[in-house]
Structure formats: C-alpha cells, structure tokens
C-alpha cells in the first residue's frame, strides 16, 4: 500500500496580496501543490486587511503578529502562544523587514519545534544595499556604483561621478529614478522620511531588467534557479506579468553567487543586462519573491523544496524548467463579513 503523504503545519507571512504584493499567497499556493507532503497553513499577519487572512480555501487560520519594530522578544512570545495551539513544523517569513528577527530567533524557534531555512545573519547583512559594493568586490560580481549618504549635499559630488539619472534608494524599500538634482533631493527627503537614513545613491545602468529566483542549500549548491523577464510593470516597479527565459549568463551568475556565498535559503536576484550583454547585480532580496508561482508553474516548486530543507529531508536539485511560460497577475475583490474583520481586529485570530 502506498504511504500516505506526511501532513505538515506551515506558517507563512506576507499575506498582503495588494498592488505591491507580499509573496505569502503565492507561497501558500505552491505549498498546497507540493507532491511530497500535504499541509495545513497558518497565516501570520501584521494588518487586519491583508487579503490572505480571508482566503479560507488556502489559509486555515491566521494570527496577528507584532511588527518587527516591537522587538524579537514580543515576536517570540507571540509565536510561543501560537505554537501551543497549532504545532507549527516550519515557518516561511516573506518580508525583508522581518527577516532579521526570524534569523535571530532561529534557535529559540527550533527549541519549540518551529524550523526555518533562512540565510545566516552574515549573509543577510552582506547583501544589504548599503554593503552591495563590497559584496560585488568580494565575490567578483559586477554591481553598479553606489554610496550610502547621510546628507543631501553629498548628491552633488555623486552626480559628477555617476552621471544622470541617479537611482535614489531607501535602506530597505523604495527606489526613485531622478533625472535632475531637484528630483534627487526631493527623492532623498521623500524616502528618508519613510525609511530613515542612510539613503543609497546608485549609478543607473541602462539595459533590460531580469530577475532570478532560486534556492541555495547553504553548502554552495544550487537547488533551484528560474530566470524571468518582467513584461508588465506597475508604477511601483513590480511585475504584473512576466515570462520564464533561458539565459545561460544569468544562470551562470546565479550559480556563481550560490557557490561563492554558500547562500542558505530562497532569494531573488535583480539583474540589469547592459547593451554589451554584461550583467550587473542591482539587488539581492533574501527571500522568496511575489512571482514565485511562475517558478512552480515551470517545474520548480521552490517553497516545497525550502520546506524539505528546513526539515532536513533529502532534497534533489531541480535541473530543468520550462522557458516561455508567462504569469499574468490579477486583482480579485473578495466579499468579507464585518464579523470576520471584527474578529481578526479584536482577538488577533481568525
């Protein structure tokens, strides 16, 4: 008789399937399509209007968790409470801003039975935008010139070094393309008011943007890698449509990155290919991207593989995927009873 699939309980954050979507809902869809296990999904949400909370066909129960700014102790206490009720096997955090806390709590969470598969703190810090020039030098990867600045006057010097336009970036989120000094100063203030200092000023590389999502096993091996070209981009620069491609150079760069850094966990590389065909690494997102369901659709179920690695199960690297498959995102209005909104808002559980 065939062995039944193991039943896992997996907690997932990033349920904000909005115009700049969190990856949570896509990750959950992938987990439900896993061939090697069945799963019960526990949603972890910061806001009561994160759409995933109300998607009862794919999310079994949702709990509020405290914002990262409240500290790791508050998060640990909340997860201990949730763990007593839900017996979570694996947690998959999907926001950059919460990763620090989850990486720091790795051992504490393992002690209560919650496993994860995240980058090490050193890896997480090395790929911060502020450290990208050093990262490029260390691992012999081309990156655009960039500098972290603390005053708007520093823009003056960089305009002669980098030329126009300049990319003005927040420490964690947001990027604005500035064509003039006035625009650069305005972007500096806008982003610093939201995300604080420093502001990263980056040289603009002309070319075509590609993204690669994948998974490293922490020993330098590539478990998964799927490159994608954005076809339809929102005003926030997010992909609303994209297509899988077979770009040998992008894949070689990804394998080089994983081999040299011994990256542990999922990631997204943001790459720019210039006219000469050279790739520049613009950013490393240390987590699963929102378009992860495309990787599943072309044959690499990265969330499933990540869950297996978290549990220490043998996980074979994916070696193929289908090129020329597209994803087209859409928005969907759900009808939600006030009672449900009231419950998640007042009790923090739904």
């Amino acid at each position: 008789m065939k062995n039944p699939k193991p039943q896992l309980t997996i907690a997932v954050t990033g349920l904000n399937a909005i115009d700049s979507p969190g990856p949570g809902v896509a990750v959950i869809r992938a987990l439900h399509e896993a061939e090697s296990f069945d799963c019960r999904i526990i949603g972890l949400a910061y806001e009561s209007l994160e759409p995933g909370i109300y998607m009862h066909d794919i999310v079994d129960k949702t709990y509020h968790i405290p914002y990262p700014s409240t500290g790791t102790e508050a998060l640990l206490n909340r997860l201990k409470y949730i763990q007593e009720k839900e017996k979570i096997d694996v947690v998959i955090p999907n926001f950059d801003a919460e990763l620090y806390s989850f990486i720091k709590l790795k051992s504490s969470l393992e002690q209560i039975g919650i496993r994860s598969f995240l980058p090490t703190m050193d890896q997480f810090e090395a790929r911060q935008k502020i450290n990208l020039p050093e990262f490029g030098k260390t691992y012999n990867i081309k990156v655009p010139k960039s500098k972290a600045i603390y005053t708007q006057n520093e823009i003056n010097k960089l305009e002669s070094d980098y030329g126009w336009p300049l990319v003005i970036k927040g420490k964690y989120y947001d990027a604005i393309l500035a064509y003039t000094r006035e625009q650069a100063v305005s972007a500096y203030h806008k982003i610093s008011a939201k995300w604080g200092l420093p502001i990263i000023v980056q040289q603009f590389v002309h070319g075509t943007e590609y993204n690669v999502t994948g998974l490293g096993d922490g020993s330098g091996n590539t478990i998964a890698a799927v490159p994608m070209r954005k076809q339809y981009i929102t005003d926030k620069g997010k992909a609303w449509g994209g297509i899988s491609i077979t770009d040998d150079k992008a894949l070689a760069l990804t394998r080089h990155f994983l081999e040299k850094t011994k990256w542990r966990g999922a990631f997204e590389l943001e790459l720019m290919k210039d006219k000469a065909g050279d790739y520049y690494l613009l950013e490393i997102n240390p987590r699963i991207p929102a378009w992860i369901y495309l990787a599943v659709g072309v044959g690499q179920n990265i969330p499933e593989a990540l869950t297996r690695l978290a549990l220490g199960l043998p996980t074979e690297p994916f070696t193929t995927y289908e090129a020329g498959k597209m994803f087209v995102r859409y928005a969907w209005d759900m009808i939600v009873s006030l009672k449900e909104f009231e419950q998640i808002s007042t009790t923090g559980e739904l």
Binding site: T208, Y210, M228, R229, Q231, G242, I243, S244, I245, T246, D247, D248, A323, G324
Partner: peptide, 9 residues
Amino acid sequence: VFNPASGES
C-alpha cells in the same frame, strides 16, 4: 517569434 533567452516576443 519568441526569443527564450531574452523573453522578447
């Protein structure tokens, strides 16, 4: 016409 290396069509 589809170029699978660049994703252009």
